[in-house]
Design a protein around this nucleic acid. Structure first.
Lengths: 330, 330
DNA sequence: CTGTTAGCGCTTTCAG
DNA sequence: CTGAAAGCGCTAACAG
């Protein structure tokens, strides 16, 4: 293995000069810089991560823990998020890896901590009251959650701004005269903020619970045609059901967007593309958000943390894409 | 940060004793062991990966590079393989991470090498003449491919033994008197070894090219019923098409396995379960193979490599599962 | 069975 | 603008 010492000898400079050439942390004459780079090239020198981490004091490595990486079919989104984190972290001179999480997430996390391999952790796809958040918090490991979960304390997170997104959607519908808005949701209960926004806008929500499949969406179309003559617009939290709805709307005598305008809120761009302009989406820069998240961990690792945990809510470039129509049913 | 020195002081022993308690690399009296462990617990000490890697000489970390991690829907298999690698590597005291590969695999690989973070690499989902194999080989990084690819030199790999698998399948059919065997395949051309085995067994292959979808399989059922009266058995390389075939066989007047016996060769166990005993599979221990692959990298990293690259072909526990019938069509 | 000690390769003062 | 030298935390001889 060739080390910095070899390079130094080859270039006829001191070891520390080689270091500074590499890190750029102090001015180096063009002359020496060239000689050092030549020596590096000739010797095939590669910097040793372990040594750098040791001397530098903190491992310049971020690990991402992604639950359900191998189960989730919606992995296109995950791919985007991972790329964002990677790029954000890289920009600050760190690296990132994915820590394989499989069945037993808790013991995987403990293993990760035990090895002490990384300077910090990003948690993705967290579940309700995720135990790993407790663990990382207790162990005082710098970490950021990409998403949110309820644990009884504050922690660093970066997440989408659902409130804002929903407000934009409802406001837009309201502007077009839609008063009776259907909501495609998993369950009868929707997040409280939705009700609040609706109330303040004077919009009436009609929750239509359904499963998130194409068939589920088709069923919703039938239900609306039959039982909800007053509903002139829909916001949907379910991507597949949204597709199903669009597919079978016309056979239920519903024309989109004239009869029913629809906004899909949790659709991937790729899905949305295939049905635009029938489905309007509220666009969102997942990549940028993840990138910011990556930078946040690095800050946390570098001890740049203020006393308060950082909480980033991403509104990003929220824009409506697709076509909506003036309300005219009933 | 608490270090080994703190622990040593707390326990009233030397630093090296703490090390040996942790590594178990030399006998320690029960008495001191307990004291050390107590001190570790009290101080919250965590071993420093970077320091260990540096002192140990080689980073005890394996990185997996998985192409198409975020595109491939067949990720259940990947999950199994990853778990296998993780466990195999763990058993030898190493750790493993996934290196995020996204668009530009080559530059990702170079980045990985540049950081020198890991002791070795496992390549998964390699493509034809994969450039990363060239790169790793050239840079003399210890690596193992889980799978195979044609580059013009020898390298470490672990892969399924397709030849053996196919032989078992054809042999079994032959034993049951099947002479005319259909082959569901992507294209008209099949791997040469298949033809060779068939020839040596006196079996006649009828290639039926199709796409790998449920509909594709249904189409095959129709084609066989109409155009291939002599075919009494099928081996299929296509998992989804296999499912489709089974689904629509009876509506084409084909009863399985009496009229047509079918062996699915590339099916995941979960898929196979749902159609057994109609579809017979050649079972394969993906997990065990991956585990062995994990151990192989560690060996490669530890310099335990003989002059020749190791090439493991996994026949594993090749056994037929499912029901086949005596040939009786024509 | 335990302690002492010399590095591993790099970063970063402190002196020129 | 450049060098010398002191560690970072740990491992593995070597010496009891």
């Amino acid at each position: 293995m060739t080390t910095r010492a070899d390079v130094a000898k080859l270039a006829g400079v001191s070891e520390s000069t080689v270091s500074y050439v590499l890190s750029g942390k102090r001015p180096i004459s063009e002359e020496t810089r060239k000689r050092v780079h030549a020596a590096i090239g000739k010797s095939g020198y590669k910097s040793n991560y372990a040594a750098a981490a040791l001397a530098g004091g903190t491992p310049r490595l971020v690990t991402m823990m992604i639950s359900n990486l191998f189960n989730d079919p919606g992995s296109r989104l995950i791919g985007t998020l991972v790329q964002g984190v990677v790029d954000g972290v890289n920009e600050l001179g760190f690296h990132s890896v994915i820590w394989p999480v499989t069945e037993d997430e808790d013991s995987d996390t403990e293993l990760l901590l035990k090895t002490n391999i990384s300077g910090g952790v990003i948690l993705m796809n967290v579940s309700n009251n995720d135990q790993r958040v407790h663990l990382l918090h207790r162990e005082k490991v710098p970490f950021v959650v990409l998403g949110r979960t309820d644990v009884g304390f504050k922690y660093n997170f970066v997440d989408r701004n659902f409130e804002e997104r929903d407000k934009i959607a409802l406001q837009e519908l309201k502007n077009l005269g839609h008063i009776d808005v259907g909501v495609m949701n998993y369950e009868e209960k929707v997040r409280p903020h939705l009700r609040k926004i609706a109330k303040s806008l004077g919009v009436k929500l009609h929750i239509i619970p359904t499963i998130n499949t194409v068939e589920g969406g088709a069923e919703v179309a039938r239900i609306i045609a039959k039982n909800f003559p007053e509903v002139s617009a829909i916001i949907s939290m379910l991507d597949l059901a949204t597709l199903g709805f669009v597919e079978s709307a016309s056979s239920c005598g519903i024309s989109i967007p004239e009869q029913i305008s629809i906004i899909g809120l949790n659709m991937l761009e790729t899905q949305a593309e295939s049905v635009r302009p029938q489905v309007t989406t509220v666009a969102f820069e997942a990549y940028e958000m993840a990138k910011s998240c990556g930078k946040l961990v690095v800050e946390a690792i570098s001890g740049d943390k203020s006393d308060q945990p950082r909480e980033e809510l991403w509104t990003g470039d929220l824009v409506l894409r697709g076509t909506l129509a003036q309300a005219r049913r009933k």
